[in-house]
Design a protein around this nucleic acid. Structure first.
Lengths: 190, 190
DNA sequence: CTCGTTTATCAACGTCCGTTGACTTCTAAT
DNA sequence: ATTAGAAGTCAACGGACGTTGATAAACGAG
């Protein structure tokens, strides 16, 4: 026990609040979670949420922050990019404190969540695809890829459609991956 | 001017409230619309909402009611089922008083919306697919179809991703239709 | 121990919302 | 014209929520 806790007490309660917030936001979405809920789950006074994060929007912004570490697609064999992307997102969505699940639940009611979601699925994926497709085509391909990835997320994590929940990760990687592959390297309609 | 208005006055205000409710719920979602908003938009007293629909949940239930008239897929050439389905849903989503847009916006925060959505995309689509696929396979295929259709809807109507919004209906029918076709008649992974 | 600073507690304010009930106005049949 | 019932108006209640400020407790440096 060389060192116990060098962190100031405040940092620990701040972290506890943030963790509670992430879990609640991820499972109920922005509007159905109250500041009092977060504080109660963390065993802390609701006023602390305001003290440390300024407002409910403030703690949501922090809870929804994260780095979408998109793999560098140039390091992946051209014909397995679709599967790689699918596997990557399924992994992210299964980790409950990743921020992306938080956004997913709140994108339809919270402006910030909506904006960040659009940023990810319009800019980040597009940038990643530009490494292997023409810049003009990249955006449209990114849109198609987004539609399938987001639909998978909605069905599996929000709506919890039985057949989509039941399918294994590898089944999904194969099936959805094949679709993404088509969207990324296949022909586009005029 | 043979007949002016045979409908009782009550039916007209009821209809006005319902129309206002549908528009508001479709564009903001359940939680961001208040009973007072609906009444104001219809130029009617908020108390009338309770009088005619019982509660906010009551008017939402009515606003979100609709018949998903799935086309009989047996009447469609086997290799153009995917395109037919895509075209059908795009048409439904573009009509603002269809109920389905209402559900789409509220599925993440309202229990009833969530349940109806699951009903449509798990039961109705599955039933339609059973006409052309084995009953055991039909459910899984319906899940995959749902994931792509819902993702398209989220990107185009909720998130409004530029490339997905920009694509024409026929472009989408071709591209997304091809994916659905694969999910309906293609091979499934083990 | 003392004292200034950080951290936490508590009660309350102001607002917004769904819902209610008392009351007025309108309508139509006798 | 009278009157019963339907339709609409209005103010208010009760509760939940985000947020605040005053106050107390815990802590660390001197």
């Amino acid at each position: 026990m060389a060192e116990k806790t060098r962190t100031p007490k405040s940092a620990r309660t701040r972290a506890a609040l943030l963790e509670a917030a992430r879990e609640l936001f991820a499972e109920r979405g922005y509007v159905k979670v109250t500041v009092r809920d977060i504080a109660a789950k963390a065993g802390i006074d609701p006023a602390m949420v305001i003290r440390y994060f300024g407002s409910k929007d403030g703690i949501f912004a922090d809870a929804a922050e994260f780095n979408l570490e998109l793999p560098d697609l140039r390091g992946v064999a051209r014909n397995s990019i679709g599967e790689a992307l699918t596997r990557h997102f399924l992994s992210i969505w299964d980790s409950p404190d990743a921020g992306l699940p938080v956004l997913l639940r709140s994108a339809s009611t919270n402006e910030l969540a909506n904006a960040r979601m659009r940023e990810i699925f319009n800019k980040q994926i597009r940038t990643a695809l530009e490494a292997i497709a023409g810049p003009d085509e990249a955006e449209q391909r990114a849109g198609l890829v987004s539609s399938q990835l987001l639909g998978l997320a909605v069905c599996r994590y929000v709506l919890k459609l039985p057949p989509v929940v039941r399918m294994s990760k590898e089944q999904l990687v194969k099936t959805i991956g094949k679709t993404l592959q088509q969207y990324i390297t296949g022909r586009l309609p005029r």
